[in-house]
Design a protein around this nucleic acid. Structure first.
Lengths: 204, 204
DNA sequence: CCGGAACTGGACTCGCAGTACACTAGGATC
DNA sequence: GATCCTAGTGTACTGCGAGTCCAGTTCCGG
């Protein structure tokens, strides 16, 4: 139906949906080619093996996720120029977004990949690593900007605080998946948001 | 070497180590029987299939984890009877314990199972769910005890706060696995500990 | 009209899960 | 001392999914 979109990205779409629902290993190539209406030969024409598929999926996913964060905090910045309030608005938007996800979870490919380690080669693992380090850098910078204006009520490790955004999202998604509830991740984000408020109570 | 320990639990030991290192699907029965020095037939005598193995592993893991929490917070309680300080000490002990893990990660079977969903039957998924709900209940009760004495500086959902302990641990372990660092989980716990301090600043 | 990109289709190998079953070693029971 | 049960061994088999190989096809631009 979506011919001009290219077979390659159609494969990625089908595969991503299947992987998020059932996990990487549980998704067979058979099933992907059936969904994409191509032959097995066609699949291997685009991807050397399942590992190459994983890599392409991760690359695309990370790009989308980064664009999403860019957009989210850009919108937050428009609403309020103060870095603390920008962060608080951004976290609220993030929580709302997680809540509005139709099926309840994008499931985060990152954690999925992290827990199925040995199925992938070093390249995939490194991609994963770089993505998380990127988010650490991003959020760390934001928190440092906040700390220049607001005095932290307790001393905190800024790298760890940056990681906590990713960690709380990932952890929330794990809970959500396991519990089969639908708003754990967004609640965890909102709880983290309260933390940020308490951590930066007043200007220097 | 450890004959009297029983073949069954020897299988579980070997399997758990392999699964935590490489993930469930990447661990073959071949490899388990080689490690446990038994025949394939012997394996299937104890476990109907891989799913039964997963279930037994989870059951054992959850039991150990619960015993660990019991012990940890019992020790904390001995050191200080006040519920807030007991929580703060307990979290510190938890962080220290996570840091001292030799290889750096127990990896948490829970998340691993959550992300490989469809490999397991409903029974395994439910086991997982019940474990997390159990921790929610446990920590929720502790936070409510704290809230009776200390006034929360911001209103929080107590279920979500209880979940946050599990969430922060799980999220920290995801980061740790993906980043190949060794102390992310313990740092995240310590950051959460600071949160608890800020959330309950003074008695009613 | 030619060549390359994007496939189709089929045949094959290999590793792993799971089944089936015949057999055995050692201890408890009667 | 025969009998039975538990806890295995060993072998042979099915079936699935990944990955390889390759010969042929379709379509599109130069």
């Amino acid at each position: 139906m979506d011919q001009k979109a290219g077979t390659r990205s159609r494969i990625l779409d089908i595969a991503e949906a299947a992987v998020l629902e059932k996990g990487f290993e549980a998704t067979s190539i058979e099933e992907i080619v059936a969904g994409a209406e191509i032959s097995r030969g066609g699949f291997f024409y685009h991807f050397k093996d399942k590992n190459a598929l994983a890599r392409a999926m991760l690359e695309r996913y990370i790009e989308v996720e980064n664009a999403l964060y860019d957009d989210l905090f850009a919108r937050a910045r428009e609403l309020n120029d103060d870095p603390l309030h920008c962060m608080l608005i951004g976290l609220k938007l993030l929580a709302e977004m997680l809540e509005e996800m139709p099926t309840g979870h994008p499931g985060c490919v990152i954690a999925s990949a992290a827990y199925q380690d040995r199925l992938f080669d070093e390249g995939v693992r490194d991609l994963n690593r770089q993505a998380i380090l990127g988010w650490r850098k991003r959020f760390r910078a934001m928190f440092e900007e906040i700390a220049e204006i607001y005095e932290p009520s307790e001393p905190v490790n800024m790298d760890a605080l940056g990681d906590m955004v990713s960690g709380v999202v990932e952890g929330g998604l794990v809970l959500q998946r396991a519990l089969r509830e639908h708003n754990n991740a967004s609640e965890q984000i909102m709880l983290f948001r309260t933390y940020v408020k308490l951590l930066f109570p007043r200007k220097h």
